[in-house]
Write a protein that binds this DNA or RNA. Structure first.
Length: 374
DNA sequence: ATCCCGGTCT
DNA sequence: AGACCGGGAT
């Protein structure tokens, strides 16, 4: 049925979208620029992220890392710190890996060929099409969540957008709709239309310039389209963090591969399949019991359970603040950190949340001012 | 409290 | 196919 759409109709739709865009577009700092580096940064930030959430990060990131070389040569901790709170931290790690790729494979100049762009780490089909069209005016149609939604509703396509066949079908349709004379304008327009007009819930059909020819509107399928088939199942995890206070210092560890928050820092963690008391943790961590025997260790603060919800995991966390007189060398597999330098280390929203609560609960300590993650 | 939203990598 | 994150809407 898609094959039966006339070329004239497709051209008409594209021109309606671009006209709508010219009247309704938001003024954003990554619009009307041609520096591929900045366009790239904006597209990575906007992956899985709303404009409102990514806006300040774009400004901060491009200010701190103004070009490919400075990004490539920066310490990873600084890049992650700049990304702190934005989520999906592999985006920041891949951003830097790609910057190094550009330095070694392209002499530091952002590549312009679609295949070279696609080969960069963290850049998939969507982002390659976005950069190719925005920075180099090449005719590649973007297919992001906004485009899936608009196309599925307008043309009444119920192929699941998270299946291989569905992706292929939508990509072909998006490319047949693409205005190849002005692919940048067309791509911006169709995405902005999905973001502002054809929204996930309560789309503004009353003011929609395509209302009278929209399949979903006519057949009352707006809430049904687009179709997704995958269900995410949620696992529960129980984190017990030990916040050692040894004079001016505390201890951190760096999270490693194959788990959430890779390469971010955290307070030493005991994870188990249920929530534990401090005594239960002692039974599972001999080195800690030894410490208790040797020193006057006491728990000066215990957070309430903090529930941290991700789409695929629910983390139940308790933080134990442990004052100890031990020297940090007794806990040498952790990283000793001056409390006043804690804010240099990239941490998850969960750790940020704890630090905020903890500093608020300190009645008059000067720690109130230095126990922050920002 | 319970839903929904979204690109890339492995 | 499943993992990766945080925030917004209802």
């Amino acid at each position: 049925m898609i094959a039966m759409i006339e070329n004239d109709d497709l051209q008409h739709i594209s021109s309606v979208l671009t006209n709508w865009y010219k009247k309704n577009k938001r003024d954003l700092p990554w619009r009307n620029i041609h520096d591929p580096y900045r366009i790239w940064i904006s597209e990575i930030i906007l992956q899985q992220t709303r404009v409102a959430q990514g806006y300040d990060y774009y400004l901060k990131f491009t200010q701190q890392f103004p070009d490919v070389q400075l990004l490539a040569n920066a310490p990873e901790d600084e890049v992650l710190k700049c990304w702190q709170g934005l989520g999906y931290y592999s985006r920041a790690r891949n951003l830097q890996a790609a910057a190094k790729q550009i330095m070694t494979q392209h002499n530091g100049k952002f590549p312009s060929a679609y295949d070279d762009i696609l080969a960069l780490k963290g850049i998939g089909e969507y982002t390659a099409a976005a950069i190719s069209s925005f920075a180099f005016k090449q005719p590649y149609a973007v297919v992001d969540g906004n485009v899936f939604r608009f196309l599925s509703r307008y043309f009444g396509i119920d192929s699941p957008i998270d299946s291989g066949a569905g992706k292929k079908q939508f990509t072909e349709l998006a490319n047949s709709l693409l205005d190849k004379q002005q692919p940048d304008l067309h791509n911006q327009a169709i995405m902005e239309f999905g973001a502002l007009q054809c929204t996930p819930t309560n789309p503004d059909c009353i003011h929609c310039p395509l209302e009278t020819s929209c399949f979903a509107k006519e057949h009352d399928k707006i809430s049904y389209l687009p179709v997704k088939e995958k269900k995410t199942r949620v696992t529960h995890r129980y984190f017990h963090h030990l916040v050692f206070i040894c004079g001016e210092e505390t201890l951190l560890s760096k999270r490693s591969d194959k788990d959430i928050w890779q390469n971010l820092y955290e307070f030493p963690l005991y994870e188990s399949t249920k929530l534990c008391s401090f005594e239960e943790i002692l039974m599972e961590r001999n080195w800690l019991s030894e410490l208790v025997k040797l020193n006057s260790v006491h728990v000066s603060y215990q957070s309430k359970e903090i529930k941290h919800v991700l789409s695929h995991q629910i983390i139940h966390a308790i933080f134990y603040v442990i004052n100890t007189e031990c020297t940090t060398s007794e806990l040498s597999h952790f990283i000793p950190v001056k409390i006043e330098h804690l804010n240099k280390y990239p941490v998850s929203r969960l750790t940020e949340k704890f630090l905020k609560k903890f500093s608020e609960n300190l009645p008059y300590s000067k720690n109130k001012y230095i126990f922050t993650a920002n």
